[in-house]
Every structure is written in structure tokens, then in C-alpha cells.
């Protein structure tokens, strides 16, 4: 398997006045294509900070991050969007869908930003919304969708971009167990099928079995790693 993300001694320190808080401390890891990795740990353990750094939206204090071989820690603000555009998609706990746009328009917006041809975009958005089970509701506004359906739109949006890396922050946080599991299963199946590298930050232990690998975090460090028995 090819390495999608490689970090070495990745550290993030937040300074609050004179007090320094080490949110992530010397994390070294390799995340590969085609694997679904769970980042588990209690609140404040550094999961989200780590996810933000490997998602190129938060700069580390120390250490290095390579995305498909590109060292991104020294890159300036004008280059980083291109890296994100090419390699990374996100799924958030709060869905972050434009309320004024229908499900399909939310997916199409990302495709438009990626510069994908209109006809190709339309077909891809329709296909993905069908795959996530929303073929009947693709012209609904987010307000007319349930939480689970909204998250499935977010999954379709993340997959539509064709980014090899998908980072999901507490994707089941606003969903009940059944809906959360359904969303995660869809995400896993599509990711494995399309050889994406999926990193999910969660504190929901009930979905542990979805992951190929679980990285357990505490106090900014990875304290344990579990692999799925195939």
C-alpha cells in the first residue's frame, strides 16, 4: 500500500498568554491508501488538532507532514489550497452544507471549485447521491433532510471531489447510533472500493469495528494502535 500521509514528530503547541498547551506531541505515523483509520480518544486528547494538521488547515509547531510525498510544513498560504484541492476532502460533525442549496447543488459546488466539467459533475453528483441512498432526495434542501441524510450528502460531497484522502471529524457526533453506523458503513465501503485513505476522528467506541486501524490518543500522543483482524 502507498503512503498517503506520513508525519514525523508532529507537535502542536497552543500558547495562551504565558501558558503553553501541548495539544499534539511528537506524533509519528503513516496512513495508507485503501485503509480506514480511526482516531479515538477522549475529548481534549488532540484528535481534532492532529486531523487539522494533516488536513493542512493548521500549521504544526514542530515536525513534518508529507502528503503523497509533498512536504507541506514549509508551504505558504497560496500553495496549501492547491494541496487540499488535489488530495483532501473533509466531513464534519455539523455537516456544513449550504442551507440555500439542495443536496445535489451542495455536491456540485465542490466539483465546480475543482474545475470539473459541468456534464461530468452532474453525472458524478447524481451517482454518488444514489450510492448514499439519496436518489429520491437530491433536490431537497438540507432543512428538509434528517441528520443522517445530511451527513450522507456530506459523504457524497467528500467522495465527489475524488480526493485520495478523506478526513472526517466526529461524523457520527450528531447522529443516533443506527444512522451513524449507516453513514460509516457507506463511507467505509466506498473508501475501500475506491482505494481512499480515510481518517476518522471519533470518541464513539461503538463503531470501532468499521476501522482497519485504530490509533488511540491521549494527552496529544498516540498511546496505542490496534489493527483489524482480517
Amino acid at each position: 500500500m502507498d503512503a498517503a500521509i506520513v508525519t514525523k514528530d508532529l507537535t502542536k503547541i497552543y500558547a495562551e498568554g504565558r501558558i503553553e498547551v501541548k495539544a499534539v506531541s511528537s506524533v509519528t505515523l503513516q496512513l495508507n491508501e485503501g485503509e480506514v483509520v480511526g482516531l479515538l480518544g477522549p475529548s481534549g486528547s488532540g484528535k481534532t488538532t492532529l486531523l487539522s494538521m494533516i488536513g493542512c488547515i493548521l500549521r504544526p509547531t514542530d515536525g513534518s507532514i508529507k502528503i503523497y510525498g509533498n512536504e507541506i510544513t514549509g508551504m505558504d498560504e497560496t500553495t496549501l489550497p492547491n494541496i487540499r484541492k488535489k488530495y483532501i476532502s473533509f466531513i464534519f460533525q455539523g455537516f456544513n452544507l449550504f442551507p440555500a442549496l439542495t443536496a445535489i447543488e451542495n455536491v456540485l459546488l465542490i466539483l465546480k471549485l475543482k474545475g470539473i466539467n459541468k456534464n461530468v459533475s452532474n453525472q458524478r453528483a447524481k451517482d454518488l447521491l444514489t450510492v448514499v441512498g439519496l436518489s429520491e432526495r437530491m433536490h431537497f434542501l438540507p432543512r428538509d433532510l434528517s441528520g443522517g441524510q445530511k451527513q450522507r450528502v456530506a459523504v457524497a460531497r467528500a467522495l465527489a471531489a475524488n480526493s485520495p484522502i478523506i478526513l472526517a471529524d466526529e461524523p457520527t457526533g450528531n447522529l443516533d447510533y443506527t444512522n451513524g453506523r449507516k453513514v460509516m458503513e457507506i463511507l467505509r465501503n466506498l473508501a475501500v472500493e475506491q482505494k481512499r485513505c480515510v481518517v476518522v476522528s471519533t470518541h464513539d467506541n461503538r463503531i470501532e469495528d468499521i476501522f482497519d486501524r485504530i490509533l488511540l490518543m491521549e494527552d496529544g500522543q498516540i498511546i496505542n494502535e490496534k489493527r483489524r483482524l482480517s
Partner: peptide
Amino acid sequence: EHIKEFGTLKAMGASNFD
């Protein structure tokens, strides 16, 4: 009100200019 949506677009590679 839409800051998170804009942020998401930005996170997915939309430039500030977009």
C-alpha cells in the same frame, strides 16, 4: 452565518478568491 460552509469550501481547496 455561513462561515462554516465557507470554511468547508476553503478546507476542500477553494481559494480565498473563489
